[in-house]
Write a protein that binds this DNA or RNA. Structure first.
Lengths: 230, 230
DNA sequence: CCCTGTTGGTGTACGCTGTACACTCCGAGA
DNA sequence: TCTCGGAGTGTACAGCGTACACCAACAGGG
């Protein structure tokens, strides 16, 4: 037909580490992380499971690569502003990346040793504090304090309330109030600000920023008083 | 021989939900959580795998039960002291329980919906803030801020540095300094306070309490200024 | 030109997992 | 004594990650 290339009918573009990674991230994005198996991934790529192993040592390497993809979506540190807003911006950028890939937080936590990409991210995060005038020690403690927030997430601890039908909710609330008075009180307060009785839960973005700012403010106070005495 | 009981040679004591749970916790304690399979657990109990399913619906129920065991080890709230030291004590008690069962933090995070035992723990935690004079809203935000710390853990993010032999460490440090200057700086500062160059890592207990107190202090400030304006 | 070595994709197979389902056995109640 | 229910068993299945042998296509050198 046209040129000498493109002879075979439907010749697949060949596999590559990158193509495998992109397919894996896409597969995890649409569905949970449990739905990511080597076999399903291979099927998605139109290939036999073992073909993946020509480009990846094993599933751990695949997961590491997927984390790197997500970390790669985080904005670089912005320069020319105070440490606090720089850190705040970057962490919120990390959070946006993590929200695009809800499986990532769990995978990040599950990794035994970090990849170079992750280490580099941590290093640059440390650098933001150091150049903001923090001592080495204080930088260290501060990173521990921020915990997983430097990656833009806190553990959710119980993902979503499985809200039942709204007719029996009134009685449910009544008997809940007996055993869990404070939780009920809180749920009612939340749902008052919103529509239903057992609404879609909390405003996670607000809560994240609330905690983040509380931490940043406390950290700034420590910096001003010149560090920490252990 | 003796009485009419105890006839058969080595009659096992029968299985029970409790015995299964205790065996499962013990098995997870000595080894990681991946080493806990229904088959290994059954073997440990001297029984065939399917026997467990007469007492547990499935593995999820087993894991839930194991979490409940750990939560049950946390001290109840102490009464007659200010909210801050009461909360602090309880959280550190939770931390001790979690340190006794290192697998528990991961399992807690992985649960989709909390068990009544866990809900009760959360409720009593909320109650401690409420009776400390916190508004419902502030209590809510505060719980989010504390995150997994109410269970006594922060995610570790990378468990342990796999320190190599100490001879080549000097060169390793040198080339690490090139790519990760701030991390190297920090590692050196830590190792200076201790023995080796790539020591056993951070003092996790110190870091946990550092972050906890920073949070508690920030939270107390919020309480004094009467809540939060969103 | 052929010959050979490398590289990417295949097929088969193994040991592990959770668990459905049909079975047996034993003690208690009618 | 007969029956019934519940505890423990045995077999079986689908799914997982992946080791290993194989094979087709291509590259470079004689």
């Amino acid at each position: 037909m046209a040129t000498e290339l493109q002879a075979r009918p439907m010749a697949r573009e060949p596999l590559s580490k990158d193509r495998v990674l992109r397919a894996a991230v896409a597969l995890a994005d649409g569905g949970s992380i449990e739905s990511l198996s080597m076999r399903k991934l291979a099927h998605e790529l139109g290939v036999v499971p073992m073909a993946i192993y020509k480009h990846m040592a094993n599933k751990d390497e695949l997961l590491d690569g997927m984390v790197d993809v997500v970390i790669g979506e985080i904005d670089p540190p912005l320069t020319g502003s105070d440490w606090k807003s720089a850190v705040r911006h970057r962490i919120l950028s990390a959070r946006r990346a993590l929200l695009r890939h809800p499986w990532a937080s769990g995978v990040i936590e599950s990794r035994r040793t970090p990849t170079p990409v992750v280490v580099e991210y941590m290093d640059s995060m440390l650098g933001m504090f150091r150049s903001g005038g923090f001592s080495v020690d204080l930088t260290h403690h501060v990173m521990h304090t921020m915990g997983s927030r430097v990656f833009g997430f806190t553990q959710e601890l119980f993902n979503d309330p499985p809200d039942g039908d709204p007719k029996t909710q009134a009685t449910m609330v009544r008997e809940m109030a007996a055993t869990y008075p404070h939780i009920t009180e809180l749920l009612l307060a939340i749902s008052h600000d919103r529509g239903s009785v057992v609404g879609p839960g909390c405003d996670d973005q607000f809560e994240f920023e609330f905690a983040l700012d509380l931490l940043l403010d406390g950290i700034e106070r420590l910096r001003q008083q010149g560090g920490v005495q252990a």
